[in-house]
């Protein structure tokens, strides 16, 4: 089971470190990181294996969202199924 973590906002030092640290804290194993630019935004995408997540999914997404608020970034964590469903037939 995988989650897609997206970080959107102004580029700044330590984004990957902070998000990775939180993933480690909750037991999410990062399998892939890519970066892209969408309009004027910096966008980072992480794919994480959440099979061994140490809390429930909602708490993990709330923690990431709170981290985003603290750093002025939009951080979202969503189950991969929403992307597969929308974009694959």
């Amino acid at each position: 089971m995988k989650a897609v973590i997206t970080v959107i906002g102004k580029d700044q030092v330590g984004i990957i470190a902070k998000v990775s640290a939180m993933c480690a804290e909750y037991g999410a194993n990062i399998t892939e990181i890519t970066q892209s630019v969408l309009d004027k935004y910096f966008a980072m995408i992480m794919i994480a294996d959440i099979s061994a997540l140490e809390s429930d999914f909602a708490k993990f997404t709330d923690a990431l969202a709170a981290l985003g608020n603290d750093c002025g970034l939009d951080i979202r964590c969503m189950h991969e199924d929403i992307f597969n469903t929308m974009h694959k037939i």
Binding site: V4, T6, S36, L38, A43, I45, M86, H87
Partner: peptide, 16 residues
């Protein structure tokens, strides 16, 4: 494998 553009398209639909 999920395409990066697909992910960003979905996020943009929700965000914007």
């Amino acid at each position: 494998m999920i395409n990066t553009q697909d992910i960003l398209e979905t996020i943009n639909m929700i965000r914007e």
